[in-house]
Amino acid sequence: MIDFTLIFRILVFPGFTFILLLTLFCDWVERKIEARIQNRVGPLVAGPAGILQPLADLIKLLTKEDIEPRDAKKTVFKIAPILAFAFMVFALCFVPIDGASVLSTTGFNGDLIVILTFSTIASFLLFLSGWASCNPYGTISSARVLTQFLGYDIPLFLFALTPAFIAGTLSIFKIASIQTIPFIILAPWAFVLFIITMQAELEKDPFDVPDAESELVGGLETEFTGAKLAFLHLTRDVQIVFGSALVVELFLGGPYGPVFFGLPAFWYTLWFVLKLLAVVVLTEYITTLFARLRIDQVLSANWKIVLPASILSLMLTVALVTWVYPLVVL
């Protein structure tokens, strides 16, 4: 019996299917918000209010002809996109969605580090897929992916340590459940900087240099068609959901919130999705309101501003946790 529950949890809820649908839904929300800010309507005819648009895109891509360029490094070209997608979904499986994570109900100490590592591996696989396509645009784009995520991973880890320090644990499950006062109030500076770093890590405007359309055509996706392209798109979208989920878990109190009646799992999921959407809306606002920076500007912003800020933030947190918070809140 327990086995069936686990299988259900992995495959349907809150596992693969739920994550996939959530990803498609977030994609739709993003496109709608972008369109509304730009005075447009956005997807409209596929399903009610165009909500099935991402699904239609996905199905169409899956059923298209799959072309392998003559020059591509075949094995990597085939495997990398789907592997990247798998790693991202796997990383999300450790995030508590309905009050417990998919794989184990309570998580383990250090799973924060594990999921951040998984997302780094996925970024690396994206780089590999661009490189394996042996296309000049893809090569340059993947070089940019590599430079950017190597640079921004360090501050991202450091910012993620701020809530971990306040909570006194490296388990994402415990960090989320310990927040009687959300950490956004205790460490607002870290929240703001984490969002900005996340924006860079997810390659969204103003940091979307790897897929700068006006220079690099389709970026690292240039050569991909059909199912492989579908998985690359999905990886990007899951990355966005993952980043937003991380913000929710680390700063907004995770899935926890008031339970009014019935199953707590239902309410937890609801709070999780609502908080997630709030973060997605926020990041999409930032995306639409800025122009793209140049790669050297992106990098110097990292080494000159974000990285020192992350170290300062960590020092400030340690000081606060040691001397101030015990007196005030905890």
């Binding site: 800010i37 005075n39 006006s214 639409t288 309101l289």
Partner: peptide, 16 residues
């Protein structure tokens, strides 16, 4: 120009 520097919102506003 907005489109070329990845500022799509500006492009949409001008063309509107």
């Amino acid at each position: 120009a907005g489109l070329e520097i990845g500022y799509e919102t500006l492009f949409q506003y001008f063309w509107r």
